[in-house]
C-alpha cells in the first residue's frame, strides 16, 4: 500500500483499534481529522488523554467514573438492598431510563463467552461476589442479555450468588409491551408460552 508517510500510516493503523473500523474507514477518518477538522482532532486528542488519565472503574459498580466510587453509588438515595447486574454501561443507561429501578448496579463489562475463551476470571466474577456480599445487598437481579452468552452468565452467577445465601432473580422475558401476537417473532412467543405464569387478578 502506498501512503504519504509512515506517520499517516501509523494513524490509520491506530484508528483501526476501534470496533467496526476497517482499513478503508480508518483512512477516511485519518484524512478527515487531518484535513477537514484539525480542531476536532485536537479535541479528540485531549479528551482521550483526559479519559485515559482520569477515568477508572467504580469500586462499587465497576462502571466508569472519575472518583473511587461513582455518583450513583454514593448518592445515598438508592435502595442498597437491590443490586442489578448488567453486561455494559449502555445497559445501565437504558435501565435508568425506565425510571422503574431505584436500586444499585454492578456492570460486568462483558459476559461469559466460552468459545472466545472469556470465562469467570476474565470477567472478574470474584469482584461481583465480593460486592454482593457486602452485607447490605438482599436481592441480586440478573439483567444480562437474553442471548446464549448472557443466559450462561446469568446461570453461572445465579449458582455462585445463591451459594452465598443471597436471593437471586432474573429479569422476565416475553412479549414486548404493546406487542401483538400476530407480529411477534415465533422464538419469543414460544419462550413466552414455556415461561407462562399464573394469571393474577
Amino acid at each position: 500500500m502506498s501512503s504519504a508517510s509512515s506517520t499517516l500510516d501509523e494513524l490509520t493503523q491506530a484508528l483501526r483499534c476501534l470496533p467496526g473500523v476497517g482499513p478503508k474507514s480508518a483512512q477516511r477518518m485519518a484524512f478527515h481529522l487531518l484535513h477537514r477538522d484539525r480542531q476536532g482532532a485536537e479535541r479528540l486528542l485531549l479528551s482521550l488523554a483526559q479519559a485515559l488519565e482520569h477515568l477508572r472503574h467504580c469500586d462499587q459498580c465497576n462502571n466508569f467514573t472519575e472518583q473511587a466510587v461513582c455518583e450513583l453509588c454514593s448518592s445515598g438515595n438508592r435502595d442498597a438492598r437491590l443490586l442489578c447486574v448488567l453486561e455494559s454501561p449502555a445497559d445501565m443507561l437504558m435501565m435508568e431510563q425506565t425510571h422503574a429501578y431505584q436500586g444499585l448496579y454492578y456492570v460486568l463489562m462483558g459476559r461469559l463467552s466460552p468459545l472466545d475463551g472469556i470465562g469467570p476470571q476474565e470477567i472478574g466474577f470474584d469482584r461481583l461476589i465480593q460486592r454482593a456480599c457486602n452485607g447490605s445487598t438482599e436481592e441480586v437481579i440478573l439483567a444480562t442479555n437474553f442471548t446464549a452468552e448472557g443466559e450462561a452468565t446469568a446461570h453461572a452467577l445465579g449458582v455462585l450468588l445463591r451459594a452465598k445465601g443471597l436471593r437471586v432473580s432474573r429479569i422476565a422475558r416475553g412479549i414486548p409491551v404493546g406487542g401483538e401476537l400476530e407480529y411477534v417473532d415465533s422464538g419469543t412467543l414460544a419462550q413466552a408460552l414455556l415461561e407462562r405464569r399464573p394469571a393474577t387478578n
Partner: peptide
C-alpha cells in the same frame, strides 16, 4: 427463519452446548 422444536438450553446444559459447538469449530 426460526424453526422451533428445541427449547432454549438452560443452566448447565448451555455450557454443554457451548462445548459441543467448540468441538465442531
Amino acid at each position: 427463519e426460526w424453526q422451533g422444536g428445541i427449547p432454549l438450553l438452560q443452566g448447565h446444559a448451555l455450557f454443554c452446548g457451548f462445548y459441543l459447538n467448540e468441538l465442531l469449530m
